[in-house]
Design a protein around this nucleic acid. Structure first.
Lengths: 207, 207
DNA sequence: GAATTGCGTGCACAAGCGTTCACTGACATA
DNA sequence: TATGTCAGTGAACGCTTGTGCACGCAATTC
């Protein structure tokens, strides 16, 4: 039966992905990542790299996909926990900040490639952020009865703020991160209040 | 008298800076900028580079400084528009978007190095953004009578949103940019409304 | 007019890069 | 058991990179 071979290949593939992750840091970004170094860290010959990815770009896009997926799963999870009561805003922002703290390398990659030099990368990251926003829009429409257009404005603003804070959190100490967290929660609440007011304004204009 | 020699040196220095700017584009960022290519574009031998900068990093920091200068010019310009009346929000956001459209290379550099791989670069950009926020805080305190703490929350949120939109505007067509502009104005108004509500909430809690 | 300074140069080097190629040998298939 | 597939290999290629060095030559200083 097939299996031993395929399993080994997958294992090497994971090793490459992991090696790339390890080499990403605050000082050493994806742009300055070399095929040879990644292969060396993964414990294979440089030429073997091509058995798994056509390019470094293909590896990079895989990293972006996996990062986005992990982030979304985490937030969905945290929103489910919230179903049983508590502040959705606090829970979501907290979860997000924890993700940033625990997955620094991935988040930094997403952030850098968001305004990076490969159009394909930029689009990939943008897609992840849009997924992210879309889930928040759905929540606002379904659970809070917002009009879709206003929900989109609100969600987009919130996501922009939160991602921007995430960027600052990368360089921050634990204490600073906690302060950022509280600040951000207040800011998201301001946006939520603003949207609520805007809704009542729109309603009274209609009648 | 001295002068001819120094003038020539300054001219070459400008040529290097300009060459570096020219090489910055959507596809080719600072990280993948090579000393030899910059020297080639500036029309000098690679080794002559060292007569002007010790490193590529030193050149890069010079670029960031110049970018920050341009950004501050934007601020001044924006303040002038406000002085002659009209919607402060619309005027500010419009001015910002125009800056992004007209200084693409510089804004992209600031954006990339904001979450880039050199700590020194990151701090330099962060300083520029903080200038930007501080101006807005002062406006909110002086002209709109906000408490300083609430003004800071509000200004920080607005700047985060606007910079994030600026990033998206880099890739956008003129039509898309216009749509982004209107969206952003709505979002900033939502934040402003939210802050206003928050202020009255705080006041009623006091009494 | 002679001496000094310093920008720009051409050559050279070692190191690193991505990628090609023909290959080996363990696993899969029939 | 014979045959085919394919992940991994090591040598070799043509490049580009940053940087050291000694030098020329024009502007400056004395």
């Amino acid at each position: 039966m097939a299996g031993v071979r395929a399993a080994q290949k997958e294992k090497t593939r994971r090793a490459l992905i992991q090696a790339a992750m390890n080499q990403l840091s605050a000082e050493h970004g994806y742009a300055s990542l070399s095929l040879r170094e990644v292969a060396r860290e993964a414990g294979i010959a440089p030429t073997s790299f091509y058995r798994h990815f056509q390019n470094m770009e293909e590896l990079g896009l895989t990293l972006v996909d996996e990062g986005g997926l992990a982030l979304r799963q985490l937030l969905r999870q945290s929103r489910q926990q919230i179903a049983k009561g508590g502040s959705i805003i606090r829970a979501s922002v907290t979860t997000f900040m924890e993700f940033v703290a625990n997955n620094t390398a991935i988040f930094r990659l997403l952030l850098q490639e968001k305004s990076g030099n490969s159009r394909e990368f930029r689009l990939a990251v943008q897609r992840e952020v849009e997924h992210f926003t879309a889930e928040l829009v759905d929540y606002l429409v379904d659970e809070q009865d917002f009009e879709r257009s206003l929900a989109e404005l609100q969600a987009d603003a919130i996501v922009r703020i939160v991602f921007s804070v995430g960027a600052d959190a990368l360089d921050a100490s634990a204490a600073e991160r906690h302060e950022l967290l509280e600040t951000t929660i207040s800011q998201v609440r301001i946006v939520a209040r603003g949207a609520a007011v805007t809704r009542t304004l729109a309603k009274s204009a209609k009648s």
